[in-house]
Simulated scan of single mutants.
Amino acid sequence: MTISIYDPTLRDGNHAVSHSLSLEEISRYCRAVDGCGIDVIEVGHGNGLGASSLQLGIARHRDTEMLETARANLTRSKLGIHMIPGFSRLSDIDTALRIGVEVLRIAAHCTEASLTESYIEHARARNAFVQGVLMMTHMASAERLLIEASKLQAYGANAIVLMDSAGHYDPDSTHEKLSLLVKEISIPVGFHAHNNLGLAIANSLAAAKAGATVIDGCMRGFGAGAGNTQLEVLCAVLERYRFETGVNVFELCRAVESLSDIAPVKTPTIVKTSNLISGLYGVCGGFEKHVTRAASEFRVEPRKIYEELARCNAVAGQEDLIISVASRLSQSDATV
């Protein structure tokens, strides 16, 4: 079976450096990996197109600058973007397509696929290739995910991607959810893992075995929280299990070594205790830096913040909730 490798290093990885990737880093990364056989390189603010803000973090560069830089340095790999309705506008789709973006990922919380309808239809009306994305999918059953994925398919999505945004999955739950979608959905299904419990490679392999044909990986695992599936390891493991990816693993390894002085390679991505706790509780990995700051400011144990966020069913985009939770916990601790 052939697996398409999708690389969000320059988007999800932007979380790891507070959205500060430079145009030079984007340019060098794209040039280095362009000939390695990776299908899509995704670029942008960590929360996607239009998300640069005080609430989510101000990106070092405008969306258009990042995309134009990547476009100028990619000749073989396709250029992709991630967008969440509300942060992104319909007009952002037109801008992205005008720049030369070839793959649009339009994402929503795992039970709110209906929010993507007008965006997917707008993009498809312009002959764009669209992947409908469900985020924080550990929060929904396989059956509910099938219902939501069916909506994305009905809106015109060319593929469906499940994101384990909190790094909460294990191989069993990965196989259960992906295999049901593969069986019931008539378009390709993909998987995006985070490594909070150290299972990103195992889960990605389980997804491939379940029939997923789009798998995400980031160079050196560079991504939000504990990072994503490590791209070069993923490609080697898939080759070891005789999946076809089109990626030349040795060329990819050479690219990693050639980029030793830029953020995606020189910034270590490890499973810190905070990542482990957020993975156990099923809290979005992108919350890590916000929780760390709030815990320090309000002198609250980070674990308590993660626990409360899990109780509140906090989802990506609710970073403002972290401050209110930390403040409330600090007041509660002061009265004990």
Score class of each variant (00 low, 15 high):
Met1Gly: 00
Ile3Cys: 04
Ser4Glu: 02
Ser4Trp: 03
Asp7Val: 09
Arg11Trp: 08
Asp12Ile: 02
Gly13Cys: 08
His15Ile: 00
Leu23Asp: 13
Leu23Gly: 15
Ile26Tyr: 10
Ile26Trp: 12
Ser27Asp: 15
Val33Ile: 13
Gly35Leu: 05
Gly35Gln: 07
Cys36Lys: 02
Val40Ala: 02
His45Asp: 13
Gly50Leu: 13
Leu56Asp: 13
Gly57Ala: 13
Arg60Ala: 14
Thr64Val: 14
Thr69Asn: 08
Leu74Cys: 12
Arg76Pro: 03
His82Leu: 15
Met83Gln: 12
Ile84Asp: 10
Gly86Glu: 14
Ser88Lys: 09
Ser91Arg: 12
Ile99Thr: 09
Glu102Gln: 15
Arg105Ile: 11
Ile106Cys: 14
Leu115Asp: 10
Leu115Thr: 11
Thr116Met: 14
Ser118Glu: 15
Tyr119Val: 12
His122Cys: 15
His122Arg: 15
Arg124Ile: 14
Arg124His: 10
Asn127Arg: 14
Asn127Ser: 14
Met135Ala: 11
Met139Gly: 04
Met139His: 01
Ala140Cys: 10
Arg144Met: 08
Arg144Phe: 08
Ser150Glu: 15
Leu152Thr: 09
Tyr155Val: 12
Ala159Leu: 10
Ile160His: 04
Ile160Gly: 00
Tyr169Gly: 00
Pro171Ser: 12
Pro171His: 08
Thr174Asp: 00
Ser179Gly: 09
Ser179Pro: 07
Ile185Gly: 14
Ile187Asn: 11
Ile187His: 07
Pro188Arg: 11
His192Ala: 06
Ala193His: 03
Ala193Leu: 05
Ala193Ile: 02
Asn196Gly: 04
Asn196Ala: 05
Ile201Ala: 08
Ala206Ser: 13
Ala208His: 02
Ala210Lys: 09
Ala212Pro: 03
Cys218Asp: 11
Arg220Ser: 08
Gly221Leu: 03
Gly225Ala: 07
Gly227Thr: 04
Leu234Ser: 05
Cys235Gly: 06
Ala236Thr: 12
Leu238Ser: 06
Glu239Thr: 08
Glu239Lys: 11
Glu239Gly: 08
Tyr241Glu: 12
Val247Glu: 00
Asn248Leu: 01
Val249Asn: 00
Phe250Trp: 07
Phe250Met: 01
Val256Tyr: 08
Val256Ile: 10
Glu257Lys: 04
Ser260Gln: 03
Ser260Tyr: 04
Pro264Met: 06
Val265Thr: 05
Val265Gln: 01
Thr267Lys: 07
Pro268His: 02
Thr273Gln: 00
Thr273Cys: 05
Ser274Gln: 04
Ser278Arg: 01
Leu280Ile: 03
Gly282Pro: 01
Cys284His: 07
Cys284Phe: 11
Cys284Gly: 03
Ala295Val: 06
Phe298Tyr: 04
Phe298Ser: 02
Arg299Gly: 01
Arg299Glu: 06
Glu301Thr: 02
Arg303Trp: 00
Glu308Phe: 00
Ala314Tyr: 09
Val315Asn: 06
Ala316Tyr: 03
Gln318Asn: 13
Glu319Pro: 13
Asp320Gly: 14
Ala326Ser: 09
Ser327Trp: 14
Ser330Gln: 06
Gln331Gly: 03
Gln331Thr: 02
Asp333Trp: 05
Ala334Asp: 03
Thr335Gly: 05
Thr335Met: 12
